[in-house]
Every structure is written in structure tokens, then in C-alpha cells.
Amino acid sequence: MGEVWTLAEFRHGELSSVSYELLNRGKNLSQKLDTALASVILGYDIKKEDIDELIARGADKVYVVDDKNLENFLVESYANVLIALLDEYKPDIFIAAATTTGRTLMPYVAVRKKTGLTADCTVLDIEEGTGNLLQTRPAIGGNILATIKTPNTRPQMATVRPHSMKPAMPDKNRNGEVIYKKYDESLFKTRSKYLRFIKDESQQVTVQDAKVIVAGGKGVGKEENFAIIDELAELLGGAVGASRDVVDRGWKTYPHQIGLSGKTVSPALYIAAGISGAVQHIAGMQTSENIIAINKDSDAQIFHLANLGIVGDLNEVLPLLIERIKEYKAKEASANV
């Protein structure tokens, strides 16, 4: 039986926390299959602490390719390296996060390996008897769930939706094997060149990464009113989401769009303000753990999904809520002094 592999994401010199979520998912699979759980980390100037952290979070092995050519993600070089690794070690399962990197690299690799890849899975399990990976993913905007397997080819590949599982607590006493790999310059040859990264200040917290999302819809009324959505999001340490109408009108940029033609998210808390809950929007957020909806129209579809629904004007409710949260925080802070 081959190993279970996860892709550790190393960007701008930092290991992304989604890498630990993948390990926690992979642990369950490797235990059922009684095989080793390994992480693959590609990049440049990878710190020892990061490798140790992967082991602490559950990796039995870590495959490390540290090369100047891998400093930034370019699909051609990353794919070449991965394929070389897969060819050499022949893991049984290989999972990555459904991030921009995972969603680019995995299909590029799966095609070359002529193997199956299932996108954006929310549940992974092992089929009794065959040991096949059962991959469950939402389709048609989350309106159906499909369970998919790759019976005849290896590795079985999947991308997993970020935040669909919590990382395990680190265990500093765990031991793991670290395998450093070096490759010939020719493997890194690409026809693409990385130029630069531009930080988007409005995306301090991105909707896919956020634990809390405060999203505004047409009911916000106008662009200026979005300030209260922004403020509430900041106060809750969350990201700002928007319905398609809002993005179409130019009140918020596309990275904020939630729904069928935007992002699919599953935060711990989703506050929908002035969002009626069109099918397309619901498709993008219905798996959120807690949903609070505020809408003037008591018949709005969004109330069918909400754990708590407020029928009222968001421009009255939210400013008062913001005030109350600030008071509460001030009180907590002084109590802790």
C-alpha cells in the first residue's frame, strides 16, 4: 500500500495553515489504510521549524524540495517536480487544498499522471474492502452531493475545501522522517516568469480564509452604506462578502463575491445583511456553520437558512449592533485588566 500524501503550501516564505488541515484529514485516511502519512513541501528557503511543525501536526514523513527555482509558484516547474516525486514514491492518495495553487497545480498534474482528480471535496473516506478513496463534493451549487472514486489509477487525487476540517493540535514529541530531494536544473525549466505580488489591502482577510464573513447585498442601498458592513467585519475579525448584484454594481470587487459565480465559502459565522438569498447566492454559503440574516423582507429566502433572522432595516440594526459590540469589548477589556 502506497502512502497518503498531502501538499503543504509554502508561499512568500510562510507555511499556510491549510497545510495542517490537510494533515488532519490525511491522518484519518492513513490510519484506515495502515500506511504512512506524508507531506510534500516545495519552495525556497524552507525553515526547519516549518518542517518540524508538519511533523508535529501529524506527518510521518516530509518530502522537501528546496530550490531557488521554486521560490514562487509557477505551475510548470511545480508540476514537473511533483510528477518526479510521484513517479519515484508512488503514493496511493495525494490531496491538496482547493486554493488558487491547489486548483491550478492538481489538474495540471492529474492530466500528466492520467489519474482521477476530484475538486473541492468536503468529505474524504475509505471504501470498505477495496481501500479506494471515497471523495464527496458538492455540485450544482451545493444542491447535490456526489461521491466519487478513482478505482483503477494511482494516485487518487483530490482537492479539499479549506476550513472543512480543523487542524490537529501540534504534538512536539512526534518523530518523523525528512527526505530532502534535489533535482536537475532541467526540471525547473519554464516558459513563465514570476514578476511580483501585489497585496490587496481590502482583502486583509479573504473570504475563503475567514472564520467570520459579513456579507452585504442589494439591500445595503448604496456603496457608501457598505462602510457599516466593513466596520462590522473588522470588529468581528472577519472578511467582507458581497452578493452578485453588489459586485455587478461596482460597490465591491469580485474577490468579495459569494455564490455560484463567485466564491463558495463555509465560515463558522455568516452574517447576511440585505441579501434576499437568490439560489445562486445560497449555493455559495449554505454550508456555513452559523447564519444570521438581516433583511427587510420577511419572505426573503435567506431566512430559510438562518439560525437567527432579523426582519428589519440593516441600516438601523447594524449601527446599533456595532455600538453594542464595542461596548461589550470595552467592558471585557477593562474586566481583564
Binding site: K114, E127, I144, I148, F303, A306, I310, V311
Partner: peptide
């Protein structure tokens, strides 16, 4: 390479307090 094992409908409605 992939096969669909099954397709099912998730239950998502939650009637909360209003």
C-alpha cells in the same frame, strides 16, 4: 479515471428564530 459512486441531496434548511 473517476467514477461516480452515488449522488444525494444534502438537507440544508434550518428554520431558526425570526
Amino acid at each position: 479515471p473517476t467514477r461516480v459512486v452515488k449522488i444525494f441531496t444534502p438537507k440544508v434548511t434550518r428554520e431558526g428564530e425570526k
